[in-house]
């Protein structure tokens, strides 16, 4: 493509997701000031249930808020692309999916699986304070052997809940009641 001039490295062009490092936490959606530009939807009906984060470049004002506030720092960044004209407006829309993690006790949404794994890695040794993070990481490493009967287990806390991925409220419940 011929560009009108050299693009400076810091030029704020089209924001691009880095799907390796974006964990789908939704912070960028929160801080995006433009209605309809970045949006997020949790689809519980899909198999497996997913979070969809959608970017509409036609609404983007290239403010850079998303990049500046990205949880993983590199999940989204403004590229040097300055000529993203398209013939069809739909082509400015991109959607990415992230698998959701539910509480294995009560079934409540915790976040995305990738977010838990990212926290496991970020926290280092501190992750060992939190079985949920260890199990999430281990599930990822051993995808095929995941059938450990991790269905929501009902209301009463039991000792085996220490070996489940739990939402904050169930973690509290377990710590206090057992």
């Amino acid at each position: 493509m011929r560009l009108p001039s050299e693009v400076p490295e810091k030029y704020r062009g089209k924001p691009e997701f880095d799907l390796e490092t974006c964990v789908g936490c939704g912070a960028c959606v929160n801080v995006c000031p433009t209605p309809g530009c970045l949006s997020m939807e949790d689809d519980f009906e899909a198999t497996p249930p997913v979070r969809r984060i959608t970017h509409r470049y036609d609404a983007c004002i290239s403010c850079g808020n998303c990049e500046a506030n990205c949880t993983t720092e590199t999940g989204i960044s403004l590229s040097n692309e300055l000529d993203p004209a398209v013939l069809n407006r739909e082509d400015t829309i991109e959607t990415h999916e992230y698998e959701l993690q539910f509480c294995e006790k009560c079934g409540e949404l915790i976040g995305t699986k990738k977010h838990l794994i990212w926290l496991y890695e970020k926290l280092g040794a501190l992750a060992y304070t939190n079985p949920s993070l260890l199990i999430a990481k281990s599930n990822e490493l051993h995808k095929e052997s995941q059938e450990v009967g991790q269905q929501p287990s009902g209301r009463d806390v039991q000792t085996s809940d220490f070996m489940r991925i739990l939402c904050p409220k169930c973690k509290y419940e377990l710590n206090i009641r057992l």
Binding site: C25, G26, A27, N30, V31, N69, T71, I110, G111, H115, L116, L119, L123, L126, T129, N130, S132, L133, L166, C167, P168, K169, C170, K171, Y172, E173, N175
Partner: peptide, 18 residues
């Protein structure tokens, strides 16, 4: 705070939730 929810997932005791 961006409301990313990391603290709620990381707290081992369920002190905060999203």
């Amino acid at each position: 705070c961006t409301g990313c929810g990391s603290c709620a997932i990381a707290c081992p005791f369920g002190t905060i939730y999203t």
